[in-house]
Amino acid sequence: MELSTLISSMLRLGTPLLLAALGVLVSAKGGIVNMGMEGNMLFGAFMSVYVTYLTGQPMLGLLASIPAGIIYSLILGAFIIKGRGHQVVCGLGLNFVVIGCTTVLLSVVWNSSGYSTDVPRLPQVKLPFLGQQSISLFITAVLVVAVWFFLEKTNTGLRVRSVGENPAAADSVGVDVVKYQFLAMVIAGALGGLAGAELAVGQMGYFIKQMTASKGFLAYSAVIFAGYNPYAVVLTTMFIGLLDAVQMRAQTMLNIPGQFLLMLPYLVTLLALIFVGDKKKPKAAGKTYVRGSF
């Protein structure tokens, strides 16, 4: 029984991370280091709660997070791909924009500096052994396979990967680098938006300022640990989810100050970075491609 509640909360805590990590993965395969995933999730979370608040339909909220995430990601893409901006710093900057804007809008819409009002959550399903889960768990499972299939088994996936490995080579055989990078960003944006929605209307049922709490960066680390493999990403994100679940259980059971338990996922991520170098990173990820500069 104890194990099943632990697994149940691991799945709940790991799912948003997994979605975000898939987004980071796809953009990395297309050659973009997506440090903006944090803001991507946060914006998706905000829009899903807002639309749910307006319509009373959490499914609409979930759907709304997709275009929201895509718009965010396209803006980031425009600065990085078209504006040739520094990928990491652009991502960080756009995170700030979203953190600032959502907090301002929070007080405008709900007249509160911290929390939104409660909104209905996504339909929850009671599963044997796995406990109560939101239906987005199933959506996520499908998306993992879909992302793998897209990257490894389709022509478009091959092109996206070629752009991330060697954009000059791709360009020289007529693969439109800009187009496929934007495509990767669109997919990443949709996944990141869903990740935020899963967090907000899938589980919490409200919006809190900065509610993503660096989950975007944890997702980024999870992708590194997984060696940029979509199936391994499932394991690494669920592991971080498990740590979070253990931490929450321990809060109620053990006599350890809460602060130290809260550190757990961040501490383990930090330590894991010692053992896993970023070796599998697509070769051109993080670099700006300018045609003709070879």
Partner: peptide, 11 residues
């Protein structure tokens, strides 16, 4: 945030 992204995307 807007300052930052504008300043690092010179183009």
């Amino acid at each position: 945030g807007i300052f930052i992204i504008l300043l690092v995307s010179p183009y």
